[in-house]
Design a protein around this nucleic acid. Sequence first.
DNA 1: AACGTCACCGCAATCGATTGTGTTAATTTT
DNA 2: AAAATTAACACAATCGATTGCGGTGACGTT
Lengths: 346, 346
Amino acid sequence: MKLGQATIKDIAKELNVSLSTVSRALKDYPGISSETKRKVKELAEKLNYRPNAIALSLRKSKSFTIGVIIPEVVHFFFSTVISGIEEVAFANGYNVILCQTNEKLQRELSSIEAMLDNQVDGLLVSYSKETEDFEHFTKLLKQNFPIVFFDRVPEIENTVNVTVNDFKGAYDATSHLINQGYKNIAHLAGPKNLTISRKRLDGYLAALQDHSIKQNPDWIIPCPIGTQEESFNFTKKLFENGKIKPDGIFASNDIAAAGAMMAVKSLGLKVPGDVGIVGFSDWQFSSMIDPPLSTVSQPGFQMGEKAISLLLEMINKKKDEIWSPKTVVLETELIIRKSSEKINKI
Amino acid sequence: MKLGQATIKDIAKELNVSLSTVSRALKDYPGISSETKRKVKELAEKLNYRPNAIALSLRKSKSFTIGVIIPEVVHFFFSTVISGIEEVAFANGYNVILCQTNEKLQRELSSIEAMLDNQVDGLLVSYSKETEDFEHFTKLLKQNFPIVFFDRVPEIENTVNVTVNDFKGAYDATSHLINQGYKNIAHLAGPKNLTISRKRLDGYLAALQDHSIKQNPDWIIPCPIGTQEESFNFTKKLFENGKIKPDGIFASNDIAAAGAMMAVKSLGLKVPGDVGIVGFSDWQFSSMIDPPLSTVSQPGFQMGEKAISLLLEMINKKKDEIWSPKTVVLETELIIRKSSEKINKI
DNA sequence: AACGTCACCGCAATCGATTGTGTTAATTTT
DNA sequence: AAAATTAACACAATCGATTGCGGTGACGTT
């Protein structure tokens, strides 16, 4: 109303026909004379008529809106995923409602409530670090409400997920360090309750094992907060206190890797050479730091595209059709830069 | 319906009362016995009743949704602004619909259409690089539709804007370089049709003038694309071709600054020392590159907060009240890091 | 006994659009 | 000429909630 937008009623009144005639004329239904159709369409054009999406949503119980729940917007990987989501949504006439949880469970819960109130047709979720119970998701899934989880996927049944191959990414990164001559590799791990953290840890461990390197529990350092400062401090401690010092670091994300790199450099050690470092995610800055950081790139944009494509499929199924649980795994790519160059090259 | 969500009708039928009674009971209207209120509320609780926001939107011609139109999601500054927007929106019970234009005018136009169809209560806009005509905005503004422009604000009348003090930021950055001993300063400028580019250019020029340094038109290099490669190439050319070479670079954004830094280093020049560099925006990576980049930080989060606060004010005015045009200017802060250290310190 | 008051609640219009089911009138069929 | 068909349109229910107004009893008042 604020826009004084013309409605079907305005057209009907102006032309002295009924609402239904206008509605049908606009959509070329049979049973309306071509003369009437012409007049209706002309007037609609003239009044700049545009159907009220809210009214349609109410009528059809479908909002053409999907909700996206992510931990943080200001995060290179997640913003890339959002970008992919937005592209496909836009191309398909869907709207994207965004909520960030700031890694808080409480916020996750209320965001979901808000989105359901707004009748979103489905949800794309990457849950928060605090989330350990998935009741709020299973409740919805039981009611056949479409949800696709991406990146951080819960270990519950009958879900549709999109992840990257975290295990292989971590395995490749660690193996790469080993092949470059770095044998004493520490791991800066992510929060324990995230599947991705565990998978990356597993990949790291598997790589060590396959190269007959014994793991050192002291060298697996969880970084629950995820800031650069955190990894800087942990890395500094690790190198200052240990009897045997690591000569390689595989970090579960680039921020941690960058912090570690600074810590190592601040101790007068050379990267690469004294210490080789590989991160995870290929953030924008990773190629710009000194030395440029080797890392495992995740196809964020594709992940977004894939996730929403799956969601749209689910949404557009007949309501009696049940979708089958599945997990799409996207492959990572090891990006080799200077930070992991061979020891003897230096 | 997908959720089998309970409606007011369900409650009414179950309790054998009318719809209006249920509605009023739920909102503690007078004229309903406390006994009835109790029963209604109990059943509502039991059925997990939640009002249908779509129905409310239709009834009230208000969707509690605002649209955000930005050039790119994967952009540190913009994602920070989004974060600020989302926080305030969430706190006030508003939803945020997001569209990115990818710097395309066509996309901007259709995004606005889509948002209006969805009855957003207002728009937050940072327009695309392609946008030179603002007809699509003035049309809405004439109809008193609430719009707040942020960062990239159009030079048209009667708008409400939030910007940073680009002029002063640029002036400070350039003056800083001069004070550090760098007198021959080139400027990597932004796209010409953006006000922010012009303001930053003006600040740069004013600083030169105030220090009695003559400007060199060849040293003002527009970077319309905005990639690191672009500024890398332009900077390289600049240093290879010029007779007199610059010893300072003020870039209108950090990406360009980073590209310039790489170009300068690739030519064997030292940063700082041979060349001092200052960027603009304080991207996440700026403190991590080598040398850490001096830059002008923009309060993105605050900008988002302020922009949506203004928008909500406008939305909640009585419809006959007219808001007055205004521009809120947020101050920048010069962040001094190593890339602009004094010449003689080296 | 007749009337007023008040508590409590229901009816129906409304928001904008869709759609199944009438209802006309003209046209065709027999 | 009467009956059947059909084109072209209107009516009204519907989606879920809100809200002005009207209605119905149970009281008290005079």
